[in-house]
Write a protein that binds this DNA or RNA. Structure first.
Length: 129
DNA sequence: CTTCTCACA
DNA sequence: TGTGAGGA
């Protein structure tokens, strides 16, 4: 299941193909790059080359757009997504200390009982108390 | 022919 | 975001 992700990350599509696939103008595609929503690679001739992941990202962006979300909003969405991914990676690295486990169960209890927002971090994996 | 950057009657 | 210039 690793080989597949690698292929999806291969930048092999020129902007012209991406335009037809996404129904976006070159202007828009480049603008989204400027907003750091996508980071296409460049080939030898300084031409942008997009991966399948980029295509998916563009479709997502387009969806958010006609859902009424603006650039800043979309940026925030992806930013928060990165934060969560990072937090999750940290949890996979180091085993939980007894202290962490206790805090997690406590947070779980509060969430289930509806006394706390589930999204609110219960502890910092980087600096366990 | 396709894409790139830059700029705006 | 559109569009056109000027170069690669």
């Amino acid at each position: 299941m690793k080989e597949k992700e690698l292929r999806r990350s291969l930048a092999v599509l020129p902007i012209g193909t991406v335009m037809k696939l996404t129904d976006l103008t070159a202007r828009q595609i480049r603008y989204y790059e400027e907003q750091e929503l996508i980071m296409p690679q460049r080939n030898d001739g300084n031409r942008r080359m997009y991966s399948l992941n980029d295509i998916d990202k563009l479709f997502e962006i387009k969806d958010y757009l006609d859902e009424g979300v603006n650039m800043v909003g979309i940026k925030e969405i992806y930013l928060e997504k990165e934060v969560r991914a990072k937090r999750q990676r940290e949890l996979l690295k180091k085993p939980l200390s007894d202290n962490d486990v206790r805090r997690i169960f406590q947070n779980e209890f509060l969430s289930v009982s509806g006394l706390k927002n589930p999204d609110e971090p219960s502890f910092n994996a980087n600096k366990p108390l």
